[in-house]
Design a protein around this nucleic acid. Sequence first.
DNA 1: TCACATAGGGATAAATTTATCACCTAGTAC
DNA 2: GTACTAGGTGATAAATTTATCCCTATGTGA
Lengths: 127, 127
Amino acid sequence: MYERKTIPNLNCGLDLIGEVLYGKWKIRLLWFIDRGHKRPSELQRKIPDATRRVLNVQLKELEDHELVTKTIYPVVPPKVEYELTDFGKSLIPVIATLGEWADDHEDRLRNVILKQIVTSDLEQASD
Amino acid sequence: MYERKTIPNLNCGLDLIGEVLYGKWKIRLLWFIDRGHKRPSELQRKIPDATRRVLNVQLKELEDHELVTKTIYPVVPPKVEYELTDFGKSLIPVIATLGEWADDHEDRLRNVILKQIVTSDLEQASD
DNA sequence: TCACATAGGGATAAATTTATCACCTAGTAC
DNA sequence: GTACTAGGTGATAAATTTATCCCTATGTGA
């Protein structure tokens, strides 16, 4: 496992939330778990762009941060279920707010993001 | 400047919001600009843990994403002011929601984050 | 002339995060 | 014996993000 080489800043609330929510797929994991997709294979299907490996890593961090619990059923084939803790559930309305804003501004967001990418591609081409 | 080597996923709203809000200091920059700290030197004072360089880089991205505008006054010594666009302003309530959640759970957050760091330090020590 | 304030940039290094690949477990069905 | 299921991990590479260092510019005041 990767060992941190610097201590994070934990001054204000925004530092703290960054520590638990940073990670490309974490918000989505919380969201889908809340929607009832509890098993790793289901989550993987919902988030096909992430590899299984990364999902495991990020789920582990969510677990360490007490946002989700992991239950391993001793059956074969293996069965694992994730669930939100109360702490994790308290985050859902916050994530919903993020999602609503993004949905409300989807077109504009897509625009500015693509514009930036295309622009830098052009710069690259003119080198 | 760094050239992207992969295209980002832009499937859902959460992908989109990630593209514009990822960046260690971006949320704070938006927040402080909204609170009236418009000049680079003020922002730097509010966010002393970030270097001036990173703030410039992230402010540039916020500008590219049309969340802030930058005004350069042709005076000496130089004067620059950032302001939120309407698009940027629409994000403030969302950021406020994040901040409130973090403030409400500050102690617990600090706990779980520190616990994880201490734990990995112990593992390191026992190697 | 020297230092200061304000704002900025390029090159490079270090840290961190994601992705890739290869391999493991243990039953069950063929 | 082989393949399939569902879940998982370690080693390593690649991508990305942050940090460091050092240099630029322009007037003002000592």
